[in-house]
């Protein structure tokens, strides 16, 4: 029967059959080892070209940003003077805290305990629908799916795909991302930070009685065990009521410039507490 068909029909049929089969196998997860293998040479090339395109981007930015950097520098110098006074006060509080922690024998994983792997940003998702970054570190460097990704300025995202030599990170600015967060205010109110199509961050599901102030820091709460606690997410820039007026919401500005990231830190030794046993008991997701 196939012999009677024209080469065009065979070509169309084969192309569609191969493509659709690949999609189905990929959705089922059967292709993961092959995808990982196929991604390796592409990651190698991406590593080379990514560095080169990053240099071009940086050079263009450097030229464009000199004027704004001067203004920003002046602002930062003024802010530094304020922060130095605050730092002295915080050191005193830290000293009290350390002594109280020792007294209570309270143990928790602090940022000093994390093991970090530094990774270069070598590319971004080609489809553009989901906000992701490609990094040049993979399973060979101890990276695993689910690892949190940060910079010194705060939370960046979470590893969602990993190959031997590279990985893909879902940014917290993506609409699919949700981070359980805590407001650094006296009541330690909680909420959920969500990304959006435009890349803006919004803190939602905050109690309507919560005292949120512009400038409050937002940290990860550690609830849900998607991220470790106390990673900086951003700073509140505005507060409003949700559309249904049941919750407060706040717009958040991350200190991280996601469009200009060149390198990040992957936390490779953070192990979330296994909560699946509770799911089995209750039948909830």
């Amino acid at each position: 029967m196939i012999g009677n068909r024209s080469p065009r029909t065979v070509a169309i049929g084969s192309a569609l059959f191969i493509s659709i089969t690949l999609v189905i196998l990929s959705l089922l997860g059967t292709l993961s080892p092959a995808e990982s293998l196929g991604r390796a040479p592409l990651t190698f090339l991406e590593n080379i070209l990514g560095g080169f395109s990053g240099s071009i981007d940086s050079a263009a930015d450097d030229i464009a940003e000199i004027r704004s950097l001067r203004t920003r520098n002046r602002e930062l110098e003024e802010a530094l003077a304020d922060y130095q006074a605050e730092l002295a006060e915080l050191r005193e509080i830290r000293s009290d805290y350390d002594r109280l922690v020792a007294l209570l024998n309270y143990t928790t994983q602090t940022p000093e305990d994390f093991r970090y792997v530094t990774a270069d940003v070598i590319g971004r998702d080609t489809a553009g629908v989901v906000r992701t970054l490609h990094l040049d570190k993979g399973t060979r460097d101890g990276v695993a799916a689910g690892d949190p990704v940060v910079t010194e300025l705060g939370l960046v995202g979470r590893v969602v795909k990993v190959s031997a030599t590279g990985c893909e990170v879902l940014l917290i600015t993506d609409a699919n991302s949700a981070v359980n967060a805590r407001i650094q205010n006296p009541n330690r109110d909680v909420g959920t930070v969500r990304g959006s199509l435009s890349g803006d961050l919004v803190l939602t599901f905050v109690d309507p009685d919560a005292q949120i102030g512009v400038g409050n820091l937002i940290l990860t709460s550690g609830e849900g065990q998607n991220f470790p606690a106390d990673l900086i997410v951003g700073q509140v820039t505005g507060v409003s009521l949700s559309d249904d007026e049941l919750f407060q919401q706040a717009s958040i500005r991350s200190l991280v410039d996601f469009s200009r990231l060149e390198f990040v830190l992957i936390i490779t030794n953070w192990e979330p507490v296994d909560l699946s046993v509770f799911d089995d008991t209750t039948g909830a997701n």
């Binding site: 191969i18 493509s19 999609v23 189905i24 998702d125």
Partner: peptide, 27 residues
């Protein structure tokens, strides 16, 4: 057609999309 399939797969390998989805669209 082979360019469409191979190009689509290459593109999907550097994306979060299921492998083969760009190939279907390109075909």
């Amino acid at each position: 057609l082979p360019w469409a399939v191979i190009g689509g797969v290459m593109r999907d390998l550097l994306s979060i999309t299921p492998t083969g989805s760009s190939a279907v669209a390109f075909v």
